[in-house]
Write a protein that binds this DNA or RNA. Structure first.
Lengths: 99, 99
DNA sequence: TAAAAGTACTTTGAATTTCAAAGTTAAGTA
DNA sequence: TACTTAACTTTGAAATTCAAAGTACTTTTA
């Protein structure tokens, strides 16, 4: 009997991190405030989940000044996209599971 | 701006509970030991997640004796199926998200 | 030039969740 | 009567999550 949940990635069980990665799969660069609006989060909560993904090296951070304001943007790393795709594949398989 | 993760159900973020519900979407009744094998879990861990789903009234428990051995089986309740489907719809929407 | 405001955090602490390990109960079998 | 199996329950510790408050840096405003 195979272990049908073994390939789900723990980094993506939290819905905030799931949201961040989903957005980064279809948008190259996304900035802090866009995430904040899309996911409806406080600064601290967003920052902490971003930090977790950064620690896993799933996202890459770039800080620039735009219109004389700091604008931090994020994109998925290659390994981040790979890990997220593998997670989605595991999810998809799970949802088709039969005994 | 809509909140793209608001409709994800907290009861299904854990991979064990996700696994249990996935199995119960395609199998009417599933027993304790089948779950244990499919999900590769200890008794305690499986029982605690089952208990959580039961508390939410997402699953229904039936205890019978089969071959003179106790055999506890579980099935998804109507509200459990509904909640799980809503969660999957929210997931699907999220994964198609664009800015 | 001093104060206020905006952006993007960091820190703190508490609540909640998760899990392994050990203990329990109830019935069946030797 | 001891032993086994199935299905839990309990305990306690570790990990996770989150809100709230605080901070650093820069620009704007008075």
């Amino acid at each position: 009997m195979k272990k049908i949940i073994a390939n789900l990635n723990k980094s993506f069980d939290n819905k905030v991190r799931l949201g961040i990665m989903s957005v980064l799969m279809v948008n190259e660069w996304v900035d802090f405030n866009t995430f904040k609006d899309m996911l409806d989060l406080t600064d601290g909560r967003l920052a902490s989940h971003i930090k977790a993904l950064e620690k896993d090296e799933y996202i890459i951070i770039e800080k620039v000044f735009f219109n004389k304001k700091p604008k931090t943007s994020y994109k998925a790393s290659k390994s981040g996209k790979k890990a997220f795709n593998e997670h989605l594949n595991a999810l998809e398989k799970l949802l088709k599971t039969r005994k």
